[in-house]
Design a protein around this nucleic acid. Sequence first.
DNA 1: CGTATAGTTAACCGTGTGCCTAACCAACAG
DNA 2: CTGTTGGTTAGGCACACGGTTAACTATACG
Lengths: 113, 113
Amino acid sequence: MPNQQASPLDRVFHGLADPTRRAVLNRLSSGPAAVSELANPFPMSLPAFLQHLDVLEECGLVKSRKTGRVRTYQLTPKPLKAAEGWLEQQRSLWSRRLDQLDTYLSDLKEQKP
Amino acid sequence: MPNQQASPLDRVFHGLADPTRRAVLNRLSSGPAAVSELANPFPMSLPAFLQHLDVLEECGLVKSRKTGRVRTYQLTPKPLKAAEGWLEQQRSLWSRRLDQLDTYLSDLKEQKP
DNA sequence: CGTATAGTTAACCGTGTGCCTAACCAACAG
DNA sequence: CTGTTGGTTAGGCACACGGTTAACTATACG
């Protein structure tokens, strides 16, 4: 995936496709935190962890501000709403199909023991 | 991201982090379809497209069955529910924080013209 | 049979991702 | 000023990802 012009949705889902980053978001959901505080629970090196924070910031899921020598991160919920919107929209389409799939699925099950 | 033991959530989000794959899911939401029919709208080569289908199938978002020489793909909504569940859970945490963030955010805005 | 059609596999290639170590600022603390 | 703390930058490495072309298999058709 070239960095050139990936859609926001692409970037958000990619941002979410990593347990470290999701954990960061999760932790961040209970309030802003500094880099080292965020990095603390993770066994990786600090530069490696910083890359994750960069990814999160580039896809707009978090913002940061540096005061003194401490950089504080906080959430930005807008792009996540986009992701959720897409999912919800898809789910509604899917579930509308579920009844029709039902027969198909049970058919599949029987033919693939 | 090593393939070794990526969590289902990892794989689903990664599966969704590509416009081609999302488009496939979208198209698939209006009913099962064969490989070439799915591949038709996309400008890439068929093997490249097949890789996308493989990704979707490996993360459980779709299933396929081959009858004759035609492989038909169809949706599997379970893993998407997991993704949606995570998002919804996060959003609830986030929005609970939004009021507190509000002050913080407007503060940020003013300090970053 | 022979040939077209639908997928599949194999080999390769450029770029991105995720991690590391080491070196490097910048801001306090004393 | 000196040292420590909190981040950051640089460089490198292994591998996954997304794409290609070419060759191959297997079903359908006539």
